[in-house]
Design a protein around this nucleic acid. Structure first.
Lengths: 172, 172
DNA sequence: AGGTGTAATGTTATACAATCACATGGAGAG
DNA sequence: CTCTCCATGTGATTGTATAACATTACACCT
């Protein structure tokens, strides 16, 4: 429905919330946090799952399942779709990774460990993605849900538009 | 990632916002509203597009593109994917139909004509979908966007959970 | 009426996303 | 040690969405 540029390596690899950051550190921290949580809760943080999270932390932008699969294959893991999908499902359901529904793509969580309702800002020009929080209970959606008697369990909140950098470019 | 029951005919066909309503009237009104808007804005409300909207208004729940395509074929239209996708794109981009990203499915807008940021409540048990409004400017996402300098153009806001009916059943 | 530009449609093929079904193997519990 | 469960691997299939290109329908002008 919308045109889609190749996703790999897109966007500013240094954009978390569209800001600079110490990338090596955030990969390390992300892995450490997952490691800790898995140990704590008795989850099996196997090598495929570990590698998958590492790939997403490295890339630091949304990757399609098949791009993840490519990188897994290169790393010597299985080459069939379920290999990637199973690892992704594990990571998503434990909050280490989020799925961007609008892009059918996955991105590493920027603050794992904290239970939260994630929200995303997606730049339609450079495909960079920034994670933030939403508060469904507050706001119009929460009001509607209460009024209707609807029980919110999970939310998908994604804003599409222009990141600061691309907005500036467009202004000229 | 999530199991998916067959979507056609699912849910309570009388659930708009999970409430009863006069279905025949709402199909009629939906078609009339689209008709009016298209005339007004010089859009071509062709027979495929008309039929597609009618299908979605009739069903009154989210339909996958290929289910729409099946019904179009039965009605004597082309049978190839682009037939459905093009009609859906027209309807979506003009606000007569919304896409539910979480379901990869399409649903007729319940209040066309009004410019709005739609939001949806999706029952994971009966697959019924209710449309409501969101206000991105207000709320946590709006705050984050302003802080980051992100320009919101469109939003995807979808809550997954239990509709009143299914929540009651689950309580027993 | 005939010509022209544009939008819509039809058709074929293919890319991308996700799941099913089944076989194998290793880690942990008893 | 063995049994069981869970994770992994593989092949095949289904579902979703577009690309690319030929053709047709329609509006507008002359």
């Amino acid at each position: 429905m919308t045109s889609r540029a190749s996703r790999s390596g897109n966007g500013n690899p240094d954009a978390v919330g569209f800001e600079q950051h110490d990338h090596a550190a955030c990969v390390r921290d992300g892995m450490a946090a997952a490691e800790a949580r898995c140990a704590e809760e008795g989850l099996r943080f196997t090598s495929v799952r570990r590698k998958t999270l590492e790939i997403l932390l490295q890339e630091h932008s949304a990757l399609g399942a098949y791009e993840v699969l490519d990188r897994l294959r290169e790393a010597g893991f299985g080459s069939q779709p379920p290999v990637a999908y199973r690892a992704l499902e594990f990571l998503v359901s434990n909050g280490f990774v989020h799925k961007i529904e609008k892009l059918n793509a996955f991105i590493a969580c920027t603050n794992p460990g904290t239970a939260h309702y994630p929200a995303f800002m997606i730049c339609r020009s450079c495909d960079s993605v920034a994670e933030t929080q939403s508060m469904p209970a507050r706001g119009a959606l929460g009001d509607a849900a209460r009024a209707a008697g609807f029980l919110i369990e999970r939310t998908v909140v994604e804003a599409e538009g222009l990141c600061p950098t691309c907005a500036d470019k467009a202004d000229t």
